[in-house]
Amino acid sequence: MKRSVRACLLVLCCGCVPVASATEIRTFKDTTEQLRYEQLVEELRCLVCQNQSLADSDADLARDLRDEVYQIIRSGKSDEEAVQFLVERYGDFVLYRPPVKPMTWLLWLGPFLALAGGLLFIRSRTRQHAATRSPELNAAERERLRQLEGDTRK
């Protein structure tokens, strides 16, 4: 159960039991292949324990799907083919990395648009403030702060 069972409050969904899972012993051609497999099952979502990746889920189906991914990788096919295999059967839902398409443009670009907006905001504020000429803390404010600090500051 690992991946998502956190924080204070939880109750376990159907048949998902909190154990260290994915303990199948696998053999690979080389470490590159192993890394490909490990990364793939990390990025695919289990449909049974929906908040876990295939790698972490102990559900029966997750085990089967790990086997499928393993077979696909071992048979020399590409990562895309493995992903394709699952998307054909379960839809985009299995992808923890949402594909870039018109529907997800806002998702992928949103943060960077927001950042750009923020930078423009900083710029516009600066101009505005460079133009004004009044003191930043008014006299009353400074006096209040001085009083709050009392006599501790020399």
Binding site: E42, S53, L95, R97, P98
Partner: peptide, 9 residues
């Protein structure tokens, strides 16, 4: 439809 947004994102 349904999509997932997970750790890779």
């Amino acid at each position: 439809g349904k999509i997932s947004v997970g750790p890779p994102y």
